[in-house]
Nucleic acid binder design. Sequence first.
DNA 1: TATTTTGGTATCCTCAAAGATACTAACCCG
DNA 2: CGGGTTAGTATCTTTGAGGATACCAAAATA
Lengths: 114, 114
Amino acid sequence: MQDIEKHLLHRDVQDALELIGGRWRGAIMTSLCGSPKRFSELKEDLKPITSRVLTKELRYLEQNKLINVERSTAAANSVLYTHSEHGSSCGPIILQLRDWAIKHREIMLEYLKE
Amino acid sequence: MQDIEKHLLHRDVQDALELIGGRWRGAIMTSLCGSPKRFSELKEDLKPITSRVLTKELRYLEQNKLINVERSTAAANSVLYTHSEHGSSCGPIILQLRDWAIKHREIMLEYLKE
DNA sequence: TATTTTGGTATCCTCAAAGATACTAACCCG
DNA sequence: CGGGTTAGTATCTTTGAGGATACCAAAATA
């Protein structure tokens, strides 16, 4: 492996972690794994997130094509958030992150016992 | 899937993203995927990271058992950072994150063309 | 012995992410 | 018509991650 490639490698990882990192983005994508949701459902699921932050993060994810936003023209006050095709492709990674976090917790508990 | 389980699901993901999220943690773990490294090698690889931040993040990763720190008793001014057993188990996930980020970049370029 | 390298500390500062709180236009339901 | 719900905005404030800069003791090296 060349130096340049190594360098690019962690730059890519940084990019990925900016997309789904931070306090809420990963959680939002996770919440949408189960099923499409409306704003209020997301807010409930991610409590104690605030409207302001949820709006901002949803706009970010929309701009980065990770979610689709169906602002139904007919019944106006209803907006559906769903994974985009590419957004749903991070589902498996998220599941692995979850499993890894659970394993991590167990390992930390082991150390605390000793 | 029950509501409670859904709730736990994204909490776990948030935990994982705290462990390897932020500006540098994922990159450090990535850099250590290739081979064990010394402080100065990490600093070079992760340029423009500062000593202060690198130290802080390494201590965090050490406390969370994701890396081992070999402070060689014999030759004192030499410290080796390596993945712990559990730390190395996030290697595959990191590779997938990298692939996913690369794919994301391509997709965004597609949209810009149109 | 002098100099450089290594692996850090010590302070101070900035800025952006996130929270608290209040408010609102449009709709929908009875 | 009136009250509640939906999907947000508008301000203001806080917090802490991360950066800039300077400094340092111990060890290696020349």
